[in-house]
Simulated scan of single mutants.
Amino acid sequence: MDPQTLFEALADPLRRRILVFLLDEAECCVCNLHQRLNAAQPKVSRHLAVLREARLVLARREGVWMHYRIHPELPAWALRILWHMKDGMAPALPAKTCGACAA
């Protein structure tokens, strides 16, 4: 990953908020993300696709649900940037569990 790719992905406030949630969670379902972000599911999914293309997150399918996590092979310098970014942002809202994907 090059720095330009990282900073282009971080240019959007919703993508930054998604990454902050994923830093706090081992893994998060897209339905939980869109509820916590108070954003439409298609919009959240579109931003997650950008983060996947930038290799910042990994996706895992479980049935019909997609679960996302911070990419485990993210370079240390990029992970440090994400943690510093998180430190400068407002605290994340508490996790909500979606009944559909929790079942």
Rank of each mutant, 00 (worst) to 15 (best):
A95C: 06
E73S: 06
K96C: 12
L74T: 03
W65F: 15
D87T: 02
T5C: 05
K96H: 07
L56R: 02
L56M: 06
L22H: 08
W83A: 09
N32Q: 15
L22T: 05
W65L: 07
P3T: 01
E8M: 14
P94G: 10
Q35G: 00
L6T: 13
V64L: 08
M85V: 02
A92W: 01
L51D: 02
L74P: 07
C101V: 05
V64Y: 08
R46S: 05
T5H: 10
E27T: 05
I81H: 09
R46V: 04
E62G: 05
L56A: 05
P42F: 03
L14F: 00
L22C: 06
A102D: 11
T5F: 05
R15E: 06
W77L: 11
C28Q: 08
L58F: 01
A40V: 11
L6R: 15
V20K: 14
R60S: 15
H84W: 03
H71T: 00
E53R: 07
F21G: 07
A76V: 14
L48V: 00
E73G: 03
M85Q: 12
D87I: 00
D87Q: 07
T5R: 15
M66H: 09
A100K: 14
R52W: 01
E25A: 15
P3L: 04
I81D: 01
L22W: 07
I70R: 04
R17E: 09
I70A: 04
E53W: 00
L22D: 01
D12L: 01
R36L: 15
P13H: 03
